[in-house]
């Protein structure tokens, strides 16, 4: 009973302080010479560890982009891909996605994630424990396939807790899935092209239809059944470590 009362009192006291602080701010504005300084609020940093595991047989992932934001999405099924996303999906280049205007914090993986391998990327944000997180990486032995997460809310994820996702594969719809020599940046197509601003496909993001491969009847494909994939293609775990 007593301790309950104590808690109530301290809450009241805190409420009073914030009212006082507001009043102080007000008077500060009115008279620039005032000596009253606003109480500094301590910065609270939220740190997340994002682990991406490549579940495919022979589709290395391009360096992963991990971004934190408060609004917007990285893509929308049925709508055209942004050019920034097209750089990832056609060429594995994440620089432009990391520089998107709505990105508050962005981190890049250090390099390719090979099939069966994982990479952990740490990302931190100040004074925001309910950001959205998006992740994108290209399946490099394709024309424009990518996997990742799109605007997943981190709200309610406490320190020590984690979430795990099985991510599907998307097609950015920006390049026809010809699988032809010279059109893909991965090792299955040495010297193949990455990003090309030309959009010669449906021009909307969808789930990926999968590759065909030469062995499955596409004679002009440089891919084999080894490069085939099914959903999911990535396991993505997010742990809040701080």
């Amino acid at each position: 009973m007593l301790s309950n009362l104590g808690i109530k009192k301290s809450r009241l006291a805190l409420g009073m302080i914030s009212v006082l602080a507001l009043a102080a701010c007000g008077s500060d504005n009115d008279s620039p010479s005032s000596d009253v300084e606003p109480t500094p609020t301590p910065t609270v940093t939220s740190v997340y560890q994002v682990t991406v595991t490549n579940l495919t047989n022979a589709q290395p992932f391009s360096p992963v982009a991990v971004i934190l934001h408060s609004e917007d999405k990285l893509w929308e099924i049925g709508s055209p891909a942004s050019e920034e996303l097209e750089y990832v999906s056609e060429g594995g280049d994440n620089n432009f996605v990391l520089g998107l205007p709505f990105v508050e914090v962005g981190e890049s993986g250090v390099g390719l994630i090979l099939p069966g391998a994982s990479e952990s990327i740490e990302i931190a944000i100040d004074d925001n424990d309910s950001a959205l997180i998006s992740v994108a990486t290209m399946l490099v032995n394709t024309n424009d396939a990518f996997t990742g997460l799109n605007a997943v809310s981190l709200a309610g994820l406490e320190v020590g807790e984690s979430m795990s996702f099985r991510a599907g594969t998307y097609d950015s719809g920006t390049e026809a899935n010809s699988e032809a020599a010279g059109t893909m940046p991965g090792p299955a197509d040495p010297g193949g092209e990455g990003f090309n601003a030309l959009r010669d496909d449906v021009d909307f993001v969808s789930m990926h239809p999968g590759i065909v491969s030469q062995q499955d009847g596409l004679s002009t494909s440089v891919l084999t059944k080894q490069h085939g994939f099914d959903n999911p293609t990535a396991k993505i775990s997010i742990s809040r470590v701080e």
């Binding site: 789930m207 239809p209 999968g210 065909v212 009847g217 596409l218 099914d230 959903n231």
Partner: peptide, 25 residues
Amino acid sequence: GNLGDSMEDGGSSDVNSTIQRWLNP
């Protein structure tokens, strides 16, 4: 899933293999 082929005329299938395939969901 569809097999399809890349031939406008003939082949085994009238489905276009690079477009009219899918993976779940």
